[in-house]
Amino acid sequence: MISLENIGKTYSTGKVSVEALRGVSLTIKERDMIAIMGPSGSGKSTLMNIIGCLDVPTSGSYRINGTEVATLTEDELAEVRSKNIGFVFQNFNLLPKLTALQNVELPMLLAGVNRAKRTKRAVELLTIVGLGDRLDHRPYELSGGQQQRVAIARALANKPHTILADEPTGALDSRSGEEIMEVFNHLNKEGLTIVLITHEGYIAEYANRVIHIKDGQIEHIEQLQHKHRHVIEKER
């Protein structure tokens, strides 16, 4: 369980300081799937980076399964990222010199998993995301949608409980975007917690809840009872 209480984040560059987050409180239960929406510059990425332990808040309290993140050292934060969280980025962020397989193996390599186990799991994951026949392709030999699926496989490598995706479909056409969302949907049903940022309503409708952010504050939280309503909307 992830709980944020009155989180604030201020960036100060020289004399100017920007309040990116102002008193955000939010609880994300296990197996939840939430979407974060809001105008550009409203603090969505900032919030997600804090949830993902890539950054630390300037005020407030953030707990993962009861542990106060503010008390952790840099290496302990790295440990949390390694074990508990998988990231998916808008621009994929694959390493261009490595093959799909090597990219997926990378988090396991960093976590000290041995070669045989690593390769076995990477092949499994790539097969799950439908790229079992693209193991030795490098990122530039893959389409955007395929690259994002490699990135999702990579995010799953160390069996995290939460996947954080910052505009995962932002660089994709709507067809590939929906395919990616189906993958997330599937993973959520398998028991993973999913938090994603999006600008597009039909993507957000895959979520159970939509958090609307404006000016660094939560404007309102929308509960969605019927998932996949977008399918109906789209056919209209």
Partner: peptide, 15 residues
């Protein structure tokens, strides 16, 4: 950028 990606994937400082 590569270093940033490695860190996001859980690389520790000493690695």
């Amino acid at each position: 950028k590569e270093i940033g990606i490695l860190k996001a994937l859980g690389a520790k400082r000493h690695q």
